[in-house]
Design a protein around this nucleic acid. Structure first.
Lengths: 220, 220
DNA sequence: ACCTGAACACCGTTCAAGT
DNA sequence: ACCTGAACACCGTTCAAGT
């Protein structure tokens, strides 16, 4: 057969209007998801962006993949901050604390991200490349803080990534009435990380099953 | 009109077969929800219980209310434990730790409860009577532990209820590969609660908007 | 009173027709 | 290549008919 197949490679250059629509869709979705949460119908997002819902599915094969793309956009900013801190912040404890804080804040202040990040990672995983990068940065920062004697030696980068989620989720029920509550529980977490208190922790540090994770199209 | 209305009062005595079916439904749902999570169709639960799906909606006005009833069943057991600890455990720190542990465990080991408890409480709240009771027990236990000097004075019962959730949710992504991971983060939380480390915490302790909570039918 | 399954509404996803 | 909205499948909820 001679019919042209549409190019499925994710990084194939899009036609100008398509690229514009993709960006519009991501921005609209980010905003809508942030305060309505994951339950908004795709049709709602499509209408808010002034597009047909078919267009959404042309660019993102499923609702989940759209959400994923939005979340990855946000985590991309977090990674940039991590790189900056890793390069420029001379105080290891301060660098770690700011990275923890920023990660918690993204989840805590964004209903869509909070709900999305709930089921993800671990067993039925997503966001692989981005999460792996975050763990790498976390590892760098926590290692330095431990070497400086600011943080107990028995917590790992994986622990801290999970605990970021935990802190954000602890504060999540009161997001509307007390949007800064997560800072309170970050303070508690920080206390728990002091080397002085270090009782041995139960069991072994967790490991993530990166192999099980599939690279979604958007991750390129 | 002379037609009899069905009695809507939630505690009205059910006919024997209806009561049996209600119990069967709750037990089946508990089991199915625990490992499949909230996404299982009602039709699946109905079939597993050998009933028509209409029967489910006759007893529980919505899927949400069925889930709620299941969760409340489980939290009922937690409350009983709390009462026992409050009455019988002489060591205040031990009593508090065991209550924290049991609450985290319920959420951590039960996918349905974990997902259900995610959105609840706080802004758009449910489970009111049961949650209020849990906070009361927590208040009793934490007060004693604080009076005994085992726990820092600036955390409240509300903090701890939220933090239970947080610990369970931190470990949730690895539930299948590492089902005991929550114990590790309970250890960390426990370290954070020591009076010795007490840096002042950010902001004020949270308060729950009980007024906003509606008593669901099942709470009778 | 209670049970049931067919019917309805809604939303995610697909696709034939149009630009 | 891309866009669109109608059509399809699935699941929560309702309800007319039966016991």
């Amino acid at each position: 057969m001679t019919g042209e197949m549409p190019d499925k490679r994710p990084d194939r250059k899009l036609r100008a209007d398509a690229e514009r629509n993709r960006r519009l869709l991501l921005d609209t979705a980010a905003q809508v998801l942030a305060d309505k949460g994951l339950d908004v119908p795709i049709s709602y997002i499509a209408r808010a962006a002034g597009l047909g819902q078919g267009t959404v599915f042309r660019r993102f094969p499923s609702k989940e993949s759209l959400v994923l793309a939005v979340v990855m956009d946000q985590l991309g900013a977090l990674i940039e901050l991590g790189d900056t801190l890793s390069a420029d912040e001379p105080d290891p404890a301060e660098a770690l604390r700011r990275f923890l804080s920023a990660g918690i804040q993204v989840v805590a202040e964004n209903r869509g991200v909070c709900e999305a990040v709930y089921g993800s990672l671990g067993a039925g995983p997503e966001l692989p490349a981005v999460y792996r990068r975050i763990v790498e940065i976390m590892h760098e920062l926590v290692s330095r803080a431990q070497a400086a004697g600011s943080v107990r030696g028995d917590v790992t980068a994986e622990d801290l990534v999970l605990l970021q989620r935990g802190v954000a989720q602890a504060a999540a029920p009161l997001r509307e009435s007390d949007p800064q509550l997560w800072r309170r529980y970050l303070d508690l977490l920080w206390d728990a990380l002091r080397p002085a208190v270090a009782d041995p922790l139960y069991g072994n540090a967790p490991t993530f099953a990166w192999e099980k994770m599939e690279i979604p199209a958007e991750a390129g």
